[in-house]
């Protein structure tokens, strides 16, 4: 296959790939082979390898005038069971990149960790930042490598990726499919089991609201994100709502030219409270009357 003298190969070292470094150090295993599937299994909707795709979560992201807002609920579920109510699904990958995760947490968190370390390794070894395109591609590759697990039904991850593109001086937002295809979106994206509701809310706000999403200020954007997640929680048992008793609010982060900021819980609490008080009282009355 390779006619190079072994020493010549060592002399002209290839550009180091972090995954390859980990394999050499015995830290990472080869990705599993992709199992063969028959046509009927492949065509069955919403299943992978015969296992229904469970993406019990809701994450969303949209562009507003202050960058990209990325939000996620806090609930982690296994079937009907609520496993955890303080999960962090919006993860900081580097100074300018956010990854929001939907799917199997074990795989998703490992993927985020891998991504973070890959960017750092590149910066340190090559003495320059990985380009925006390179970062976006790196996540594609991780998803592609994970396909074997995904098709066995044990590692489906469908992430969102938001990053500030320094060269183009613009924030960018992407969603991915299970196989690693990436789609750049102009306004908003959502993923997880609650995403149909969220998509509808965002679509409505974008098209028929007082102003389109990219023109919203931070206060309006925050309110919309909270309402969208609240709607998802109403419709989807696997999405956690706001637990005011325990002070558990969604995680909301914003990325722009200044880097990443996490919206403090106190700000979310205030926004949520203000919104509740401004709602017409009969909205509450109507629901009690039907009982």
């Amino acid at each position: 296959m390779n006619t190079f003298h072994p020493q010549a190969e060592e002399t002209f070292a290839r550009m180091p790939d972090f995954a390859e470094v980990l394999r050499r150090h015995g830290v990472l295993q080869e990705p599993p082979p992709i199992p063969a599937m028959n046509a009927s299994a492949a065509s069955a909707a919403a299943t992978i390898g015969g296992v229904p795709v469970t993406q019990a979560t809701t994450i969303l992201a949209f562009k507003f005038c202050g960058g990209v807002l990325v939000a996620g609920d806090r609930r982690a579920t296994a079937g009907n069971l609520v496993v955890y109510d303080r999960a962090d699904k919006v993860l900081e990958i580097d100074q300018y990149s956010l990854m929001a995760i939907a799917g199997v947490p074990a795989t998703a968190w490992e993927m985020a960790r891998m991504l973070e370390h890959t960017f750092q390794f590149y910066r340190r070894s090559q003495l320059q930042e990985l380009s925006h395109e390179g970062k976006v591609r790196a996540l594609s590759k991780l998803l592609r490598d994970n396909l074997g697990f995904a098709m066995q039904g044990v590692g489906v991850v469908v992430p969102l990726f938001a990053s500030y593109d320094i060269q183009a001086a613009t924030p960018r937002l992407y969603f991915y499919d299970v196989m690693g295809a990436r789609f750049e979106v102009a306004d908003f994206a959502a993923s997880g089991s609650g995403s149909p509701s969220v998509r509808a809310v965002l679509q409505y706000a974008n098209a028929y609201g007082p102003r389109p999403l990219p023109k919203m200020n931070e206060e309006e954007a925050l309110l919309l994100a909270l309402r969208a997640l609240d709607t998802a929680a109403q419709n989807d048992t696997a999405t956690g709502g706001v637990d005011r008793h325990a002070q558990v609010y969604p995680i909301i982060k914003i990325v722009n030219e200044g880097g990443i900021t996490t919206v403090p819980e106190a700000v979310l609490a205030k926004a949520y409270q203000r919104d509740l008080q401004s709602l017409p009282k009969n909205a509450v009355l109507l629901t009690t009357e039907t009982e």
């Binding site: 070292a13 972090f18 470094v21 150090h25 830290v27 390794f121 340190r124 070894s125």
Partner: peptide, 14 residues
């Protein structure tokens, strides 16, 4: 330099 980065990064990840 590369060896040092590799050793540190592998340990930090693992």
């Amino acid at each position: 330099r590369m060896s040092a980065i590799e050793v540190a990064s592998a340990e930090g990840f693992n």
